[in-house]
Simulated scan of single mutants.
Amino acid sequence: MGLFDIFKKKKADDTAKATTELKGIVSPTNGELLEITAVPDEVFSQKMMGDGFAIKSNDGLVVSPVSGNVEMVFDTKHAIGLKTADGIEVLIHMGIDTVNLKGEGFEIFVKAGDKVKAGDKLAKMDLPFIIENAKSDITPVIFTNLKEEQSIKVSTGSVSAKEENRIEII
């Protein structure tokens, strides 16, 4: 499933693109690392778009959780799609119902086509504005094309941006 097809149902053969292992996943912010089931939106919490994890930033800075290419930056600046060299697609959706903010509250530091390394700065969220004007400032990070037998394991709790060994594909 391509990042542009994020709202389409997964097909079994689409998940075969992802490799069995991705090394070097880092925390994308300073704050709290959460299970995907903690996201206050059924599309994400019930893994309809894929498995992943969530973050609740305490400073609004979002860095890339993986090395790869920036595949897309939504016009509304609320989401960024990445693709690793192994073909794993990662969607970072900053906040819940933030598409309605029409780009306000977000500063983006990358564009489609850019290469990034895990830990590179992607975006800055204006947390007070997002908390005031959106459903939630919790950010789901979704791996949209994992194999059916793969899942995400997270060590929840307080986390620092770029922290390693807290998120893994199993």
Rank of each mutant, 00 (worst) to 15 (best):
G2T: 14
F4I: 12
I6H: 13
F7G: 09
F7C: 04
F7Y: 13
F7N: 15
K8W: 00
K8T: 07
K9S: 08
K9W: 02
K10C: 02
K10S: 13
T15F: 04
A18G: 11
A18W: 02
A18D: 05
T20Q: 14
K23Y: 05
K23M: 11
K23G: 11
G24K: 04
V26Y: 04
S27A: 15
T29G: 10
L33Y: 05
L33R: 08
L34K: 15
T37L: 03
A38F: 04
A38P: 08
V39S: 04
E42A: 15
E42Y: 08
Q46Y: 01
M48D: 11
G50S: 06
D51H: 15
D51E: 15
G52F: 11
G52M: 08
G52I: 11
F53W: 08
K56V: 11
K56A: 15
G60A: 09
L61M: 15
V62A: 10
V62R: 09
V63F: 13
V63S: 07
V63Y: 13
S64D: 05
P65K: 07
P65Q: 05
S67R: 10
S67E: 05
S67G: 08
S67H: 06
S67Q: 05
G68V: 09
G68E: 03
G68S: 08
N69P: 00
V70P: 03
V73H: 01
V73F: 02
V73C: 04
F74N: 07
T76S: 15
K77L: 14
K77N: 13
H78C: 03
A79V: 11
I80D: 00
I80H: 04
L82T: 06
K83T: 13
K83C: 06
A85D: 14
A85T: 11
A85W: 00
A85S: 14
G87W: 01
G87L: 04
G87E: 03
G87P: 06
I88R: 02
I88V: 12
E89Q: 14
V90Y: 01
V90M: 04
L91Q: 02
I92C: 06
H93G: 07
H93K: 09
I96Q: 01
V99N: 04
N100K: 15
N100L: 14
K102R: 10
E104W: 03
G105I: 03
F106W: 07
E107A: 11
I108Y: 13
I108C: 07
V110Y: 00
A112M: 08
A112Q: 12
G113P: 07
D114M: 05
D114I: 06
D114A: 09
A118Q: 06
G119D: 03
G119W: 06
A123C: 09
A123V: 07
K124V: 14
K124T: 12
P128C: 03
F129A: 01
E132C: 05
K135T: 13
S136R: 01
T139F: 00
V141A: 05
L146Q: 03
E148Q: 12
E149K: 13
E149L: 04
E149I: 09
E149A: 12
E149Q: 13
Q150C: 03
S151D: 13
I152G: 00
T156A: 14
T156R: 07
G157T: 08
G157L: 06
S160V: 01
A161R: 15
A161P: 08
A161N: 10
E164L: 09
E164T: 15
R166T: 01
I167Q: 02
I167K: 02
E168M: 10
I169W: 06
I170W: 07
I170N: 10
I170M: 11
